[in-house]
Design a protein around this nucleic acid. Sequence first.
DNA 1: CTGAAAGCGCTTACAG
DNA 2: CTGAAAGCGCTTACAG
Lengths: 337, 337
Amino acid sequence: MKSTIKDVAKMANVSISTVSRVMNNPDIVTRDKRDKILEAIERLNYTPNALARGLIHKRTQTLGVLIPDISNLFYAELIKGMEDAAHESGNNLIICNTDNNQDRRQSSLKVLSEKQIDGIIFTSEPIFPDSYEVFKQLGVPIVLAATHSLEYNIPSVKVNDEQAAFDAAEYLIHKGHHRIGMISGSMLDPISGLPRIQGFLRALRTHGIDLDPERCIEYGNYHFNDGYEAVRRLHKKFPEMTALFATSDERALGCISYFHEHKIKVPDEISVIGFDNTRIAGMCFPKLTTVAQPLYEMGELAVRKLDRLINGESLEELRTYMAHWIVERETVRDLTQ
Amino acid sequence: MKSTIKDVAKMANVSISTVSRVMNNPDIVTRDKRDKILEAIERLNYTPNALARGLIHKRTQTLGVLIPDISNLFYAELIKGMEDAAHESGNNLIICNTDNNQDRRQSSLKVLSEKQIDGIIFTSEPIFPDSYEVFKQLGVPIVLAATHSLEYNIPSVKVNDEQAAFDAAEYLIHKGHHRIGMISGSMLDPISGLPRIQGFLRALRTHGIDLDPERCIEYGNYHFNDGYEAVRRLHKKFPEMTALFATSDERALGCISYFHEHKIKVPDEISVIGFDNTRIAGMCFPKLTTVAQPLYEMGELAVRKLDRLINGESLEELRTYMAHWIVERETVRDLTQ
DNA sequence: CTGAAAGCGCTTACAG
DNA sequence: CTGAAAGCGCTTACAG
């Protein structure tokens, strides 16, 4: 049904080698035959079989992407950046949702490998030794996006989370806040948990603010409801706080929702700063002030790095830390004026 | 570097045929050899090459998905449903962002075809004759998700948009609203534009509400800002409206943002109902009452249908219209009490 | 410039 | 039960 190179060759009265040549190196064949072949290709609607090509070239122009939870807004922009960069370099993306589940992650890696993808982008999650072993076995380049590894030399693209958290807290301090709470991911999370806590605490320290971490930090998962629940606990044990740093926009919205429900005015009575600058930050009320990550660009750069690696080129930088910045909107009150 | 079936055969001292058999039909080979082969596979970390297999079986266990704008929240849940269903049936998804751009759509279709994907899921956009021609040329099954075609017999999964819009408007009417505005997509959009307008107008008619469409409907694209701009125009020409139907959550949030800015209280002074029930609907303030589409399930069903088609099975239903429902939250005021 | 042949890594009748 | 051979749809030296 789908026509093959043989069909084209037959119709154009040439060998399949010649057909192959007009596809890969047209100048090398005589005008006469070339035209005939081109016409046959047109008439048969012939399109080369990428499997056969891939088998020979050991290159599929396909990249695998592992995402922990694809329904999270965070990945929408990241994936778009990857998609655009992939499209630009002639690659396609196979996206695997791993559901934060080790088995599914490993099995995804296995089928990606069987499908001979040229490289892998691994997002968000920390790299544990067993994952690293699997990576090595795969035998294809890997780039980390929105995560990194200090133990292993794997190229990565992310923001400096410690510094970003520092900047968020300092921003609040500069606005006159001294009793600042934090809603964070787990301290056991070496990517977006611990470093942000460290940055937050460093800012307090730097500015001589003496706050007991036990009291001013509360933990929760990254969903809206987790933020809501966490801030309920935090507010109970730290009622005098005037500002709050929630380390994801979704968490921040959960907090704001809690405040709305309890008639606590944002930002009049409490200020909130989020993290990520996903699209919702500009769509909610009041609009969320937040630490922006260049998500689209991170996705883009991750793919570009991967493509470079696949082509055997070297990277200027193993671990790239992209600039973050603060987007001032409406949820932080300036106490200094 | 990656080991092949030959390496395994050599190590186990058998022919490649026998190795192939233990992978595909293990019972047929003697226990003795089987164990040796299994051991070799283990030691060599052998994993079969899916390209070679695909070449023979004419089946790649890979599905292509075309998405107009992957950064739109709408697709997060839809894709997750597809991903889970694909994973369940042993398929992978190649997701192509078409950027609402015809060239990119066609070129994506072309490379998907070259990569011998087993089927395609096409989302959201209407099917024009030229797209249909391309679909036919592809020679693989296609399923439409969140769109359908009345002209062509292509399987589809979506909500009944006309009825959903009717229900939204009627809901507002039952709450005592009679001066109802609408922020809609273009009338030229036969999927999520015109049908929703028709449903809206039918509800007005059914309940004897006489409103000039020219006056109570305003148009805009599906982004937040489009909603914001559209409602500004609408509010100018139809200031007495007490309720508003915005045909996407994002548009609705844009409207609400406009109202916030102009000190118009939602829902006290104006009620708003959205469409989609994306995750933001529950994360904003006030929480958005909206028409829910079963996005996850739509994605799931689209993949299941496609898988059935690929396996040569028949579909019980060509065009499936999934149930929608209204999620009551906080943006609609009941005028009847 | 062009064709025949070998080969990419598999599977599957076909003999034995 | 098992191996040799043909073949999936291509590309690429190798001759000519």
